[in-house]
């Protein structure tokens, strides 16, 4: 096809990098939850969708964008905590696969609830930040903002996890669950906090995504599988792995999409993912066997 090493190729590469920031942020929350609670939220992208609607309606209702974003983050953080308390806690001792599937039920539920409440129309805030042009290459400001905020959020989370008592407890619990009571750590509380943080990260991702993407009830299906793939590719539970994997996958998408059609970029990414997992089932940075 029309794939050559020219300025447009470079543009695709750089846009891939910008996309990687957002995907890494999305993977981060899911990874954190998996690492700590050992549960995969199949409905993670649907939480993002809820956040996007929350922000959309808050902003349309007259709330300034930044406040609306904050509202979205808190809304999804609350949703994460509720999800954990109501759906995950009763199945914590069940087979892992039942835990995964129960969140699949939540996926259907949230999608349908959004359809009923908000309709099937595509909505967007209609905010245009414009774009920057560099030597024939153009990058939209919203992508650059997204990348910057995602990076900053990851830095803040990293500081939290490495400096604070609760943060260290969150990392510790992923390494040895049984002895946490000996440290005076209430596992249930840490799970709840982690779920809220995971939700908050989804909320933040939602706040960034409303700048770029249309909102519709099925948007989760667009991103969900991609996020799982990134988490598994990086090694479930590995935060750094998730970041590297996000970068690799988004480059596949960006370059594949610019050379062929969008679907092929995604398809190649999924194929690459499967091949890597066959060679290294624990993912690129996974420590588990």
């Amino acid at each position: 096809m029309d794939c050559q090493l020219d300025i447009f190729f470079l543009e695709a590469v750089l846009n891939g990098l910008l996309l990687a920031g957002l995907l890494a942020l999305l993977a981060l929350g899911l990874n954190l939850i998996f690492g700590v609670i050992d549960v995969v939220w199949i409905c993670y992208a649907e939480l993002v969708m809820i956040g996007m609607y929350g922000i959309y309606y808050a902003h349309k209702g007259g709330v300034p964008l930044l406040l609306a974003a904050l509202f979205g983050i808190l809304l999804v953080a609350l949703a994460g905590a509720v999800l954990h308390q109501v759906v995950i806690r009763p199945v914590l001792d069940s087979a892992p696969i039942n835990q995964l599937l129960v969140t699949g039920g939540v996926l259907f539920f949230l999608q349908a609830a959004a359809t009923m409440a908000f309709g099937v129309d595509f909505r967007n805030l209609g905010i245009r930040f414009g774009s920057i042009t560099l030597a024939d290459m153009s990058f939209s400001y919203s992508r650059i903002i997204t990348f910057g905020v995602a990076l900053a959020a990851m830095l803040v989370l990293w500081l939290f996890l490495s400096r604070t008592y609760v943060g260290i407890a969150i990392r510790a619990i992923a390494q040895d669950r049984q002895i946490m009571p000996l440290m005076g750590v209430d596992q249930r509380r840490i799970y709840l906090i982690t779920s809220a943080i995971g939700g908050g990260l989804a909320g933040l991702a939602a706040a960034l995504m409303v700048l770029q993407y249309d909102i519709y009830p099925q948007i989760g299906l667009q991103f969900g599988p991609l996020i799982f793939m990134i988490c598994v590719l990086g090694g479930l539970g590995s935060l750094i792995g998730g970041f590297v994997a996000a970068f690799i996958i988004s480059e596949f998408i960006a370059i594949g999409g610019s050379c062929f059609a969008t679907e092929w970029g995604y398809a190649i990414a999924f194929l690459f993912f499967m091949v890597v997992i066959f060679i290294r089932p624990q993912g690129l940075f996974g420590g588990r066997s």
């Binding site: 039920g105 939540v106 539920f109």
Partner: peptide, 15 residues
């Protein structure tokens, strides 16, 4: 949007 109600109940039942 009422058409989504069956999926909603379906999801709930699965949970």
């Amino acid at each position: 949007a009422v058409l989504a109600l069956d999926t909603l109940i379906y999801g709930l039942l699965l949970i």
